[in-house]
């Protein structure tokens, strides 16, 4: 099957039952996408599928034929960090970093549809992304500050 990830086309053979997460991590070696649960409950495997945030552990690889996928590796453009990435660094929103790719991509999809959210809207938007290190405080602040930049 053909698959487009971070603007690049790939041709791969996929065994049935393989998830998009498996393909990204183990076939394409894009290991920035993480697996925290494998059952859709933690958000650490979040990627963008045609601009929408999805849990890649719940998507079968064969479902994404012809769609565009963005992973954390594809978020910065020409060596320049996305404002969300920069804000996460500056605001101290990154600790262990395991949730970080998923949270940033969820936030990206959310801000694309709602560029000036309230704190509560941000919290609701990332409620599917667990973070065990930060207590969310600095993550929420980072997303807010990215809306201003």
């Amino acid at each position: 099957m053909k698959i487009k990830v971070n603007g690049q086309d790939y041709e791969i053979t996929v065994e049935p039952g393989r998830t998009l997460l498996d393909i990204l991590r183990y076939e394409l070696r894009l290991t920035g996408t993480k697996e925290g649960c494998g059952t859709g409950s933690c958000g650490s495997c979040t990627v963008l599928l045609d601009g929408e945030a999805v849990n890649s552990c719940l998507v079968f690889a064969i479902e994404v034929e012809g769609k565009e996928i963005t992973t954390i590796e594809g978020l910065s453009q020409q060596g320049k960090l996305h404002p969300l990435q920069q804000a996460f660094i500056d605001e101290g929103a990154v600790q262990c970093g395991f949730c970080t790719p998923g949270v940033i991509l969820t936030a990206k999809a959310f801000l694309d549809s709602n560029p000036h959210p309230t704190e509560l809207e941000i919290r609701q938007a990332i409620a599917g992304n667990l973070c065990r290190c930060t207590g969310y405080d600095k993550i929420v602040r980072a997303i807010m500050s990215a809306t201003n930049s």
């Binding site: 991590r25 183990y26 070696r29 894009l30 290991t31 920035g32 996408t33 993480k34 697996e35 992973t71 954390i72 590796e73 978020l75 910065s76 960090l81 990435q85 996460f88 660094i89 500056d90 101290g92 990154v94 600790q95 970093g97 395991f98 970080t100 790719p101 940033i104």
Partner: peptide
């Protein structure tokens, strides 16, 4: 800011499960 944050926001930080 943490010196490890850049690798983590770009997905290049290597965790145990990423070693191939």
């Amino acid at each position: 800011p943490r010196i490890d944050a850049l690798n983590k926001v770009t997905g290049t930080a290597v965790y145990s499960g990423d070693v191939i």
